[in-house]
Design a protein around this nucleic acid. Structure first.
Lengths: 145, 145
DNA sequence: TAAAGTTGTAACAATCAATGTTTCAACTTA
DNA sequence: TAAGTTGAAACATTGATTGTTACAACTTTA
């Protein structure tokens, strides 16, 4: 199993908006070209980012821009915006443990907190990284090319 | 997306083996009853745990037992044994970023390390928890019932 | 006002992973 | 030899992911 590529696509999109936004209109078609991902998927991802207050888009005239400063957008914000993980949590628990068994009726009590801790460790790491970090590295690499 | 329930099933199985192993033979049929999961799936999971050196099983006579001490089996060992995450890693990267675009040809360099860090944060948390912890809690709860 | 380009969204298709099911050979013990 | 079990293959079902087609609504410009 893997976390949906909408996450890396979203980071790619946001990087493009920052890097190219001052030179050209960044449309879903342009982003489709840069990511290699279907333009409709791009528009879906942009829609999620817009709902989360991360980007602004313009119907008709086209193009997207960031809605807040780079250092105020964490990878967790992006991960959250594109619904990488559903409400059930990162770990899929088997759904019918047997309540007649001492282990079956208690396994949730024993495991739920620990599974949540593990998920939070992942998410805390994502919270510690901002788009400013990602784009600063990107600019450095591009300049060195 | 969610991590396969084979992980929580495996923890459930191992808990049953420890809790019931001294009173009765713990067969795939018994484990199917306790977990609510198909006995063939149980046998698949037991097979993975056996390959990883976590349990021993007996063909013919039936039953499974732990192959090493509880405090030497971490949740990470279990997670790893049942192949929760494939070789590509936890995050699915979009597969065709455009090498003709400065962002497209560098996005992997910028993101791969950070994605790996996030995955490792999750895995480190799982490494910090052993089956001894899980089963100690389980026994406590059962006694209090 | 008409044309061109774009977003937003719905509906559907294709592919793949997760889980369940059936079946049976090989094995162990009684 | 009979009964119960594991190991494993083959297949079915379901749901999620990604891609595709289509089109109404919108904005800008000519």
């Amino acid at each position: 199993m893997q976390i949906t590529s909408k996450f890396t696509v979203a980071v790619h999109i946001l990087t493009c908006i920052e890097i190219f936004g001052n030179q050209r209109r960044v449309t879903s078609d342009f982003l489709s070209g840069s990511t290699g991902v279907n333009a409709v998927i791009i528009r879906n991802v942009l829609g999620k980012l817009r709902e989360a207050g991360i980007v602004e888009t313009r119907q008709g005239s086209g193009g997207a821009n960031l809605a807040r400063p780079l250092n105020e957008i964490t990878l967790y914000d992006v991960y959250n915006a594109v619904d990488c993980i559903d409400d059930e949590g990162l770990f899929h628990f088997h759904e019918n443990p047997n309540a007649d068994c001492p282990v079956g009726r208690n396994i949730h009590k024993v495991m739920d907190g620990r599974l949540k801790s593990a998920q939070q460790a992942l998410e805390n790491e994502l919270k510690s990284i901002t788009l400013a970090d990602v784009i600063s590295d990107t600019r450095k690499i591009i300049e060195e090319e």
